[in-house]
Design a binder for these strands. Sequence first.
DNA 1: CTGTTAGCGCCTTCAA
DNA 2: TTGAAGGCGCTAACAG
Lengths: 331, 331
Amino acid sequence: MSIEKVARLAGVSTATVSRVLNGYAGVRPATRERVLAAIAASQYQPNLLARQLRTAQSRMLLVLVSSIINPFCSRVVRGIEAEAEAHGYHILLCNSDSQPQRESAYLALLSGKIVDGVITMDAITNLPGLRQMIGDSPWVQCAEGDPDAEASSVTIDNQQAAHEAVAHLAQQRRRRIAMINGDPRYLYAQQREVGYRAALKVHHLSWSGVEYASDVECEAGYAAMARLLDRADPPDAIFAVSDVLAVGAIHCIRQRRLRVPQDIAVLGFDGLPWSAMLSPPLSTLEQPMQQLGVRSVQLLLQRIRDPRAPHIHEQLSCRLVARASSQLVPD
Amino acid sequence: MSIEKVARLAGVSTATVSRVLNGYAGVRPATRERVLAAIAASQYQPNLLARQLRTAQSRMLLVLVSSIINPFCSRVVRGIEAEAEAHGYHILLCNSDSQPQRESAYLALLSGKIVDGVITMDAITNLPGLRQMIGDSPWVQCAEGDPDAEASSVTIDNQQAAHEAVAHLAQQRRRRIAMINGDPRYLYAQQREVGYRAALKVHHLSWSGVEYASDVECEAGYAAMARLLDRADPPDAIFAVSDVLAVGAIHCIRQRRLRVPQDIAVLGFDGLPWSAMLSPPLSTLEQPMQQLGVRSVQLLLQRIRDPRAPHIHEQLSCRLVARASSQLVPD
DNA sequence: CTGTTAGCGCCTTCAA
DNA sequence: TTGAAGGCGCTAACAG
């Protein structure tokens, strides 16, 4: 009844009010003024639900994230948010904690027309009923891209990145390079492990050791490191798949009276700002976090505008930042 | 046209379909079966927009955050998300970066009926037109509570917490205790500064020094620390309003060949898990981050269910965790 | 330039 | 137990 109230107040039809509301040309200035005055007088606020129902678009994007407390994710999300906002879109955030039922509950919003598209950062490719839930709705995978999925993706070359990481450690004359990996259900974890193993081979390193962190918190990195140090033949270098896990690993190493990097070199992943300010400064593989989010939104909007647009698999480059935690002497 | 399609397929009316959809009693089992079959056969998905328009509730909550990359915020948001989800609500995330225009753009979703209520973690009390935008919609302030605002709030006692922080440092025989504060537009920053100054007085410390970080990243902590060290009479202890800022401060101290805690003691705020794993382990004031989010949602839902429910100002307690960064000998 | 009209898809009395 | 019908508030043809 609201647009109607305004219409009555201004002595025009609802169509005219709608026209000024949406800035359409073809309204006499005098009429426009009258409508504007009525809007102001009545403190009218358009009912967005009604508008969205009518126009069949919500200008909302669903973002499915495994864990927002993972600083990598939160930075990507900020990129997503900023770019979405710049295009007049809002984001609905789902923190799935990798629980399939939570993921699918949110995906229902997609088929329910609440959102115009979805960006997933979660390992959901194997979600049962995924195809049906997403249908052919616009979908972009961010940081976690399955080339076989019918979706665009924005990722880094995880395999190559892991390869670089190992190469760097090998170059520091490390022979027993271990990996602290994430949840192996994630593609990024699988891909980085492939890269890790391939690099070991290239560098003729026969020792290998992979431990999986139980979650993304530093305590998990600590625990994984403890398991590695408990081995009969412990590592002399660590490649951790996140800076946070690396912090935990370093703490564990220190507690055992070992030194970083003299006894054990440590290399992280992500390139969070504070990695440079740790002691020792943490070497890391820097990802373009903000940009991963930004490009995901761009690809998604492209697809929303033209549903027949082809799927694109984009890879952003990352950069090894060598600091004191992985080398005795700076380059 | 969709519920209608199902209705035709099942040979019933749309009303009946709606009834089984919403689980209302009074549908003959046989009929229900037929409808269910039709729903399955047609892969029907209810249009949530239409439903929300009709029922005038969206089961969505708006969360207005200054910066999701602030780990404190992201943990509170996770608490919000979890609790909301448990009650069948979804959250719309707005990362305002403290820009009033972004805040008000999102607040329009409130008056536009897109969300049923709002939780703000931002310093928005002075937003022009705030009252009108929020109207009497359900609103809870989280971690940043203005007792004068017509809204419930869930906070900690910032003044008391800062007092404790300073008391701890004073107890370590520190005489020149400086504060690295956040953006002074925030109430938490103002309140903690009041607590800081009050505590100095109580402990008969005449030296005082406050520097404001330009944002929430560690680089800002570094810069603030640099300014403090450039003073003629530099501090011998630092009270930083976040763990992240403390990391930057410590890095700066170290770069100047000073030691933590021997030369300068450092105390952070928030109690992020990795604060315990830094070197030296960071003393900090631990906040109940998850719980701040959870309680905010509970208060908000209460208000949504009963709009006449009174405003509640709740204070959660926090805890000083003394570690090596602030004391030469453990307690 | 402006008004009339017809839905968007759903829920919900009111009757039957 | 079921169906018919109205309307949530808005936009978009189509007339005038």
